[in-house]
């Protein structure tokens, strides 16, 4: 029988690049668990970027701040058990303009109607709907991959996270 190998914060084995005729930096090769191990709780570290679009890794630990974006975002839980709370914002335009990219922090509690909660485990993917506020909570450290657009709090630290020499 075959065993499916997934990875976690304390158990991952990074692959690598065997360069024949290229610069390893062109592959921007990182490992999300290594990134999350080196991150502060809920820092949003860009691990993949294609022009304005990004994939960002969050180290989920405890309760996050509330955030909102004017476009849909998606959260793929890659470790831990994460509770996601969603609130329909009364006035999303007080947090962002319709054309803005990426998510913005909300100070304190969001004002709006509770939409519901999602309890997601490794491999589960959740919609973070446009103009809603969302908050993550975990009891044990976990990892969340966010599909989004680069925003004011997206952190790029490529040289720290990527393979630069082989």
């Amino acid at each position: 029988m075959f065993e499916t190998k997934t990875a976690s914060l304390d158990d991952y084995t990074k692959g690598g690049i065997e360069v024949i005729d290229d610069d390893p930096k062109h592959y921007a090769f990182s490992n999300m668990y290594e990134v999350a191990n080196a991150s502060k709780p809920y820092e949003s570290v860009v691990v993949a970027m294609n022009r304005q679009y990004t994939l960002e890794i969050l180290r989920a630990e405890g309760e996050s701040e509330w955030r909102t974006a004017p476009h849909d975002e998606f959260a793929l839980v890659m470790g831990g058990e994460v509770t996601i709370r969603l609130v329909k914002l009364d006035n999303p335009r007080s947090h962002h303009d319709p054309g803005d990219s990426g998510s913005r922090r909300i100070d304190g509690e969001p004002s709006g109607e509770p939409m519901g909660t999602i309890k997601a485990k490794k491999g589960h993917m959740a919609l973070l709907p446009a103009d809603s506020a969302y908050q993550f909570q975990t009891d044990e450290p976990g990892v969340i991959l966010i599909q989004t657009i680069k925003g004011p709090d997206s952190i790029e630290r490529w040289a720290d996270i990527c393979i630069t020499t082989v």
Partner: peptide, 29 residues
């Protein structure tokens, strides 16, 4: 999950450029 080995070659000529091994959690362009 699991592991994939990639052969990477020049787009125009097909000359080999790199071998990339990706395992669970790895991200690469």
């Amino acid at each position: 999950s699991d592991e994939i080995h990639w052969d990477v070659a020049d787009r125009e000529t097909g000359a080999l450029r790199a071998k990339v091994v990706m395992r669970a959690g790895d991200v690469a362009a």
